[in-house]
Each structure stands twice: as C-alpha cells, then as structure tokens.
Design a protein around this nucleic acid. Structure first.
Lengths: 134, 134
DNA sequence: ACTTGAGGTGGAGCGCACTCCAGGGACCAG
DNA sequence: CTGGTCCCTGGAGTGCGCTCCACCTCAAGT
C-alpha cells in the first residue's frame, strides 16, 4: 500500500505544507497516519480527497461547507443521496458564478469598445471623455 | 444637476453605506461633495464610477488594482490606451477564471455521475463506495 | 562526527475587504 | 418638545484562509 510524504502531497496537490497541516487541524482532512517517527504518511485516499477539496475550494466553496461535506463522505452510512444533493447545489452555484462573470465581462468589453471609440475620434476634439458607461 | 444621498446610492449600487464611506477613505472614490450640513451628495458620475467598481470587484479585481485604474480615469491626460490595456488584461483574467470554473465544474459533474452510478447498483452489494474520483 | 534537509508542534500574525460602534448633528412630523 | 430618520466621524473589530515562526527531532549522506 503506497503512502506519500507531506512533501510529495504538497507537490501533487499544490497545497502548501502549512495548508495541509491546517486542513488536518480544522478537520477538513481526517487524522493522517504517522510513521514510527511521528511523521505524516498520506494514503491514496487522502490524496484523492484533497483533489476534491481543491476542486471545491477553487469553485468558491467555503471551508465550513467542505467540512460538512467531509462528514458525509466519512460516514459509511448510505448517504449517497445527500452527497449528490450537496454537489448539485454547489454545481448550480458554480453555474451562477459563471453567468455572473459573463455578465460583468460584457460590461468590461463594452467599456473597452467605448474607449476604442474615443481613440478613433479624429483628434483635436475637446476631451469628450466623460465616464458615461455605455 | 441631480445629486444622490448616500442612502440612494447604497440602494442603487448595492454597496452598504459603510462600504461607500470606506471606498472614499481609501481613495477608490474621489472626494464626494457635501451639502451645507456636511452630508454627502453623490453626482451621476460618482454613481456610474461605482457601477464600474462593482463590475471590477465582482470579477475579482483587488482594490489596489482598482485604485490604480481609478488614478488613470481621474487624470485628464490622454491615457485612454493605458485604460484599455488595464481592462483588456482584466478581461483575459476573467476569461481564465471562467475556464477554470468550467474545468472544476466538470470534475464535480463527473463526481455526481459517479455517485449516481453507486445509487444504481442493485442493492445488497458490499459498500463499494470508495472515493476513486473518476 | 557532522551537516543537510525534511518534518514536527503550538501559537501568533497577516492581508483583505469590509463592518460595527459610540457619540454626535440636522432636520422633519406631530 | 419629542421622536424618528438619516447622516457624520474616528477608530476598533471581524471573518476567512491561510502563513510564518521558533525551536525541536530524526534519518541519510560524506
């Protein structure tokens, strides 16, 4: 059974050593096994869970909610429906985030277009450069 | 010339009164005019700039960078090209954010599908529910 | 024997973006 | 006059998610 040192896990997941320890402290990572010398040895499962954490984190899920999801995952009761519910809810939030970004990106693009228009004015025209966002 | 009270601006822009005052303090909003009693009276320009701020903020631009952009906008030198440069750089970042969200959303969707598969197993099968994220 | 480097702990500190608060005006309606 | 509502100021506090630090241990290499 393969295990990973903290350094390897940091390398692989992109989390810093401090962050890995922090996640363990706050219970976002279940108690990691230790070798004889008390050093952490992560399992494959730990690493793949961290992959999930990265994904949820990078899509803006707050730590408290990840912890709640973790509890679900670590119970071995048949709560698969609950897990699905959490993920679907989050998926919808991600969708909404993307939509919002697109909307705002549109405003930015229009602003850029407006500025391009200003640049295109022959020159010598009085600075007609007032911020009327459209 | 129309002016707006803090309350109206808060209403219209969605920023809290405290946030409006905060933005003024840190120079993200230029010194707002006051009436005889020392109360703020925002101009149309203030409000439309706040619209831009909301847009940049909601797409993740840090305050420090918004301040730099604000400086550009408030100079009346012909720096339109610089403004365009800032906005285009930001636009690309937003694009990258969206792409990243889509990538991670995909992982979530695959996880959901995996869980659905688990649910579909006839029942009575030994909890083969190990987290192998695929 | 010694150096190097990875890792351990507990706890303090940080950066960001607000948010709240105490204590005080200005003005209006009843 | 009383109350209510809106607004003012300076400064302290908050919540999140890390990040840093001092000081210690252990194991491997030369």
């Amino acid at each position: 059974m393969t295990v990973y040192t903290p350094g390897q896990v940091a390398e692989e997941t992109g989390f810093s050593l401090d962050t890995l320890r922090y996640y363990e402290r706050i219970g976002l990572l279940r108690r990691v096994r230790r070798n004889a010398a008390g050093q952490r040895r992560f399992t494959e499962d730990d690493v793949s869970w961290l992959g999930m954490v990265r994904c949820l984190r990078d899509t803006g899920m707050p730590i408290a909610e990840m912890r709640r999801f973790a509890e679900l995952v670590w119970q071995d009761e048949p709560n698969v429906k609950d897990r699905i519910a959490v993920l679907e809810r989050h998926d919808r939030k991600v969708e909404e985030q993307i939509a919002e970004l697109r909307r705002q990106q549109d405003v930015i693009k229009r602003k850029i277009a407006y500025y391009r228009g200003v640049l295109a004015i022959p020159d010598g025209v009085t600075a007609q450069d007032r911020e009327s966002a459209s």
